[in-house]
Design a binder for these strands. Structure first.
Lengths: 259, 259
DNA sequence: CCAAAAGTGTTACCAATACACCCATGT
DNA sequence: ACATGGGTGTATTGGTAACACTTTTGG
């Protein structure tokens, strides 16, 4: 049965916790914000920020509240739900269902952190508590996927950036080479970014001054609907005719079950 | 930091429910399995199958158990998590966090249903309880997306099928025209399907006998990684060199927080 | 022999990659 | 001048949509 161990935070109605995988590109390394557990269970391991859901808050409100203890929430440029884990033994000694979130902080920001909290390179994760490492990997995977078909890059970059900076963020997040030239054209074509008109002075050694760009919106949008099984281009009204009900042997009642 | 107040109710641990959006193509119509609520709250509206999470089962086990009451679970060809909803007022009178699942049943199957349960056309949904309609739409959206870049078609089709049947399933699920000819080549190229060698006798009116195909695996696989921001083709080892730590001003400790 | 349905071959199109080349600046 | 980094132009590639055409059956 469910044993209540004194790890549960404040007066909870139910054992539901909310966890966040907070990612940021720090000096060219995709990093995750982790928190060091001083107490059992899993003392000495690193855990995701988060905690119990309060009776009067939504999941999203909850994770924002709990993140506020770790990092300045105003720095969070994106927050979306990952998935929920409910294995009975995922946390020893007590039954907790966890809902994971992915949070993103733009490059360059450097929020102050509590002493037990630190950024960890995503490809050299420390020993982590419970099933948290798995959630981190899910978060990274989600980020990588969405960079490809949405404008999620806005959440990794500061408001104004040069194309080589942006390509660097994509490189770090995706883990492979990204050509700044082609990235520029892809994002321009899709209407994700636009030049601000400003330029940036070249560093020592010279070089042409780089144009400054910004994302047109800093809210998630899908800009590349899946490349295959598109609706046909030719006849825009390729609507599927509603099938003849008389031929149907279906049982699709619209009212109550009067059978 | 963490306050210790073991107020969480023991035993019937938490108000967590699991819901399933079960979809099937029935006579060319993408349909959802719904259940008629006889009692308050929201009596007379249609709801998703599901129910409370038991203390000793995982989320996935729970939804399988609860679906077994509505539909022969052996018919379920696919089951994946959608998302969780935790707004405090999503169900009047009590606080319940819900985790939604997407379940798929292959065309042709016609499991017996309890009297209060029926299939409903997905584009003419009845008045639904709580936030369930929103979950249905999320499920449909998920299905449509994954048809494009995974082999999820296996879950909509019976084990053996002709290309025109399969194109029909895709048409119904996606809501737009799908060319059987091109679908065949796409799925063959991706290695999703293969001919069984059998053919099917043409109906009255003749026609060339159709070849029977099957999906090579009936487990979800991603067959079309996102079309853009691929790793470069040329040099397979375009690995990003690990950044020099000495130049880094980072604080990415590998051990406990000794700061 | 004709109609119907399935399958094949071919073309056109579009978007992304690769890469050579041009531009603007610091030393 | 020339090295350095940014930006533009362009050829190539690859995969899908579109569609005409061939194949195989029933009447």
């Amino acid at each position: 049965m469910t044993v209540v161990t004194p790890t549960s935070p404040v007066g909870q109605a139910c054992d539901h916790e909310v966890l966040a995988v907070v990612l940021q590109i720090r000096s060219g390394v995709l990093s995750a914000l982790l928190w060091w557990r001083a107490f059992a269970p899993d003392a000495g391991r690193w855990a995701l920020p988060g905690g119990g859901l309060r009776p009067d808050e939504s999941l999203r409100d909850s994770i924002r509240r709990q993140l506020a203890e770790k990092v300045d929430v105003r720095e969070l440029t994106h927050l979306e739900q990952l998935d929920s884990r409910g294995e009975p033994d995922r946390v020893p000694g007590r039954r907790v269902v966890a809902t994971g979130y992915l949070g993103l902080v733009p490059a360059g920001a450097d929020p102050g952190l509590p002493g037990d909290t630190a950024w960890h390179s995503s490809d050299r994760l420390p020993r982590m508590a419970f099933d948290h490492e798995d959630l981190v990997r899910a978060g990274i995977q989600r980020l990588r996927s969405k960079l490809s078909y949405t404008n999620l890059g806005f959440a990794l970059a500061q408001p104004g950036f040069t194309m080589s900076e942006l390509a660097g963020y994509y490189r770090s997040a995706l883990g492979h080479e990204v050509d700044a030239t082609n990235l520029q054209r892809i994002l321009l074509r899709r209407g994700q970014i636009e030049p601000t008109g400003d330029t940036v002075r070249p560093g020592r050694g010279g070089g042409r001054p780089a144009a400054v760009y910004r994302f047109r919106t800093r809210v998630l949008e899908v800009t590349d609907e899946f490349a295959v099984l598109h609706p046909p281009r030719r006849s825009p009204e390729h609507r599927i005719p509603p099938p003849v009900p008389s031929l149907s042997t279906e049982r699709v009642p619209d009212a109550g079950p009067g059978h």
